[in-house]
Design a protein around this nucleic acid. Structure first.
Length: 678
DNA sequence: ATCTGTAGCGCC
DNA sequence: AAAGGGCGCTACAGAT
């Protein structure tokens, strides 16, 4: 049965409509009486837009399969506050973050939610965009064979709470409880109950983070923009001048505009510096080697990216001028006016949006709403120089508290691999130097007998090489990667990899184990604690391909290779290449994803602990959570309670650390200032 | 004029 | 028989 909950029954009291569309009109008090016994409740809202500060609710809907209640805005929503905040009830929503922001704006904090959108993402984590639809409509069709009419979104703004709008609004909560039940079965089968619990708890925090927003000092930002623009103009000018004075004629053009007035044609630089296509010939003419292998396709190509040019800086002064230009260009384009445009007119703050579940369970930030065209900035790649960070400030009477984990991924890696030398290193009471420690493992002969703390002074090159080598290996690289990154011969790269894996047998075994498991199971276990999983979406297909590569296949392969036949070139070789690339990619993911994923989940759990602290101490809407950047939380607190809030933040993060790391201890140190220190 | 893919680079 | 993880945004370049 459908109900319209309203304080103005006269407007809707039309018996014909009631017959036609089958709904009853009741008062909010009557509604509350009827829903009092419910413990699993579908919840949804219809709103006038996406931003709770500038747009308002049109209605909200509660209910289950038997009864649905559409509450219009003649009703004082605060009458429902106790009901909605009751933690003994579970509210089931699809993409809860959206609705929760609107309730937060009304100071209604719903904490016990089950998000069917997140559940579907958890069940199919790893599937590329578009391969597995996550919408409520798609889920209802998939699990319940029910087709929802989503046209309501457009209709409700035109005709308000008409009878058919009430029907469709009610439908959005009518089926979701059954959807929840079906998803729970699937989650239990895949051992994902713990994982969805974490995400359901965190979505409440994430809604609060988005609602909190962050304050940007407009004048500081404008000053920075002016400085950046001047630096960019100067960098461009310097490049142009260099070309006019040093480059071949083919890179210099006649300025035809000037011709008219001056009577002659002044020369000007003919290169658009933002166009790699135009810059590549210039660098080649100067003797740079720009040939690299494409990461995705493996095809050789030319590139002027920083990591290609940096090792060749000595060839021409143009190289460092160009890198300066690229940096200046990035700063003025990505970190400029768009930030000012996104300051909310009501809150005066920037409220960006976050995606809660990327392939490794990390958050991402930014994006664009395809329906409205609204754009959001990425708050996770703000340049870390102090001038830029100083533009993000606390409100008067408040401070910003930044807290990040020290070496979060290294410690998670130690926990997962159980490498005894790493455990010992991180638990050591003496003063240690991590990169020197690793250097001694990478270069056991060169550094034999050299005390760890003397490596930095005596062998700085080996130390920095070891740092890069460790980085490469932990991300799934190998000897050839190391050789390329350190500009060493392949044999040396291989030797470093071998030394590293021999010195750390626990790491070697761990890598072998996770690669094998991923391939056997069809998923990568992201956390042994929460059991989040990254599914290899085309695993069955890959298995079939592998099966087809039997002895007969390889005999054919060798024969055709000898002949260099069209069959080999057009079919066999591409097939093998694609298979080997995909398998290699999965194995690298298997080595890295659990580290990245466990870290991300740890930070989410820390966020949940901190949010609970705020709630229990009546500090919600007094203390804000402004940003989350993978291993870091940024909080804004009133000056007079800053120390206790900082302590709680530190405790939340370190306690979350103890859940995921048993053999080593995570540290998180808060720092406070009137701007974003990090 | 608008869309799509690529190259490059900011953060962790 | 390939060969460093995750993201999002901007410019260019080519297609429609």
């Amino acid at each position: 049965m459908r109900y319209l909950v309203t304080n103005q029954p006269a407007l809707f009291d039309n018996s014909n409509i009631e017959e036609l569309y089958d709904y009853h009109i009741i008062s909010p008090q009557e509604c509350l009486r009827r829903i009092d016994s419910l413990t699993l409740i579908g919840l949804d809202t219809e709103t006038k837009g996406f931003d709770p500060y500038t747009k308002s609710l049109l209605c909200f809907q509660l209910g289950d399969k038997d009864n649905q209640y559409v509450v219009d805005m003649t009703v004082d929503i605060q009458l429902f506050k106790n009901f909605l905040e009751d933690t003994k009830r579970t509210f089931i929503l699809h993409n809860a973050k959206f609705d929760l922001r609107f309730f937060l704006h009304l100071r209604i904090v719903i904490t016990n939610v089950f998000d069917t959108y997140l559940a579907e993402k958890i069940l199919y984590l790893g599937y590329p965009p578009g391969v597995h639809e996550m919408s409520l409509k798609a889920c209802c069709e998939r699990y319940l064979n029910v087709t929802l009419d989503k046209e309501i979104r457009g209709v409700i703004h035109r005709e308000g709470l008409s009878a058919r709008v009430i029907k469709y609004a009610a439908d959005d909560v009518k089926y979701i409880v059954e959807l929840y039940a079906e998803q729970m079965k699937a989650l239990a089968e895949k051992d994902l109950i713990k994982a969805i619990e974490v995400e359901n708890k965190f979505v409440v925090v994430l809604a609060y983070i988005e609602y909190s927003g962050i304050k940007l000092d407009i004048q500081k930002w404008k000053d920075k923009m002016a400085t950046d623009k001047a630096a960019f103009d100067k960098a461009k000018e310097t490049l142009d001048t260099w070309v006019l004075q040093n480059a071949d004629d083919e890179f210099i053009s006649q300025d035809l505009q000037g011709d008219l007035f001056l009577g002659y044609s002044p020369k000007k630089c003919g290169i658009s510096w933002s166009s790699p296509k135009q810059v590549i010939p210039l660098f080649e003419s100067l003797g740079f080697n720009l040939i690299v292998k494409d990461k995705k396709t493996g095809i050789l190509k030319k590139s002027v990216e920083a990591k290609v040019i940096e090792p060749q800086l000595k060839i021409s002064p143009l190289a460092s001028l160009y890198l300066d230009y690229k940096q200046a260009e990035k700063v003025i384009s990505t970190y400029g006016q768009t930030f000012l445009d996104q300051i909310n007119p009501v809150s005066g703050r920037i409220h960006t949006q976050y995606n809660q579940l990327m392939d490794t369970t990390r958050l991402s930030s930014g994006g664009k709403n395809k329906d409205t065209g609204e754009e959001y900035i990425n708050l996770q790649n703000i340049p870390s120089d102090e001038i830029t960070r100083a533009c993000f400030v606390s409100s008067p009477g408040h401070v910003l508290i930044d807290c990040d984990y020290t070496a979060q991924e290294d410690l998670i890696f130690t926990e997962l691999s159980k490498e005894t030398k790493l455990i010992e290193f991180y638990n050591s009471k003496e003063k240690r130097d991590g990169h020197s420690f690793v250097a001694k493992m990478c270069f056991p002969k060169d550094l034999d007998g050299v005390p760890e703390l003397e490596v930095k002074g005596k062998f700085p090159k080996l130390r920095s090489d070891a740092k890069k080598a460790k980085f490469a290996i932990h991300y799934g690289g190998n000897g050839s990667t190391i050789a390329r990154n350190l500009s060493l011969p392949l044999e040396l790269g291989n030797a470093i990899e071998k030394s590293y894996l021999t010195s750390f047998p626990g790491i070697h075994n761990y890598f072998k184990q996770v690669k094998k498991e991923a391939w056997e199971r069809g998923y990568i276990l992201l956390s042994p604690i929460t059991k989040h999983k990254h599914y290899i979406y085309n695993w069955k297909e890959l298995q079939d391909t592998q099966k087809s590569m039997d002895q007969t296949f390889w005999e054919l392969y060798r024969t055709e290779k000898q002949l260099d036949s069209p069959l080999f070139k057009n079919e066999l070789k591409p097939m093998v290449t694609q298979f080997v690339q995909q398998k290699g990619s999965i194995e690298r993911h298997a080595m890295n994803y659990p580290v990245q994923g466990s870290s991300a989940i740890m930070t989410k759990v820390a966020g949940v602990f901190f949010f609970n602290y705020l709630k229990q101490n009546n500090l919600l809407f007094k203390v804000w959570i402004c940003n989350a950047v993978h291993d870091e939380l940024l909080v804004e607190a009133p000056e007079d309670i800053k120390d206790s809030v900082a302590n709680a933040l530190q405790w939340s993060m370190e306690y979350a650390g103890t859940i995921f790391c048993k053999v080593v201890k995570l540290k998180a140190v808060p720092e406070m200032a009137t701007y974003w220190i990090h």
